[in-house]
Design a protein around this nucleic acid. Sequence first.
DNA 1: TTCTCGATTGTCT
DNA 2: GACAATCGAGAAA
Length: 202
Amino acid sequence: MLSALSFNPIEQTFYLSEDVVELSQKLLGKVLVTQNTEGELTAGIISETEAYKGPEDMASHAYNGRRTPRNEVMYAEGGRAYVYLCYGIHCLFNVVTHIQNSPHAVLIRSVIPLIGIEYMQKRRKNKVPISVGPGLVCQAFGITLEDNGASLTENRIWIEDHGIEIPKSAIVCAKRIGIEYAKEHANLLWRFILSKEFNLTF
DNA sequence: TTCTCGATTGTCT
DNA sequence: GACAATCGAGAAA
């Protein structure tokens, strides 16, 4: 399906949507691609996302308008990478969305590897799974804190649309992970997962 | 300046 | 199922 991958990122306007919950679902089936300085190309289908809706979402780093050096990039115009360190160990990769000063973001939790699997395995030291879990996605794709703020329309980290249609019936909604502190917002079904059945069609 | 704890993962039992 | 690893952001003082 992706035998000939060219640099063809989704245009930035895609990320300017005001509805981060809807955009989180639209990102399912899209293809995440990274390329490091050695020219190692890795790509895979986004299969799990979480929506974080800016100031009104207690689970978001930007809740109640909080603005710090760490989350500054969330306030940028949509179409950038927000990468931060969690638990002192793992990098987590988010897609910044909506317009400037509206700090919405989509956490990429899981990716189905397609291209450059040997590089992913090398970076993961041959451990499995390769890219199920937000910290592992960053390991497999070589995303680090240095990539925080990177534009998703440049040739380091980008997302492509390969016309994979995801029917609503193939999207499983669930509670977001690890945000019990967010009280009532922890119960929002803002995690979106490609159903197992659909995965098998790749 | 100090303290707490996290949008997680891997290992051990 | 339990828990250690690990470090910086954010809050409190």
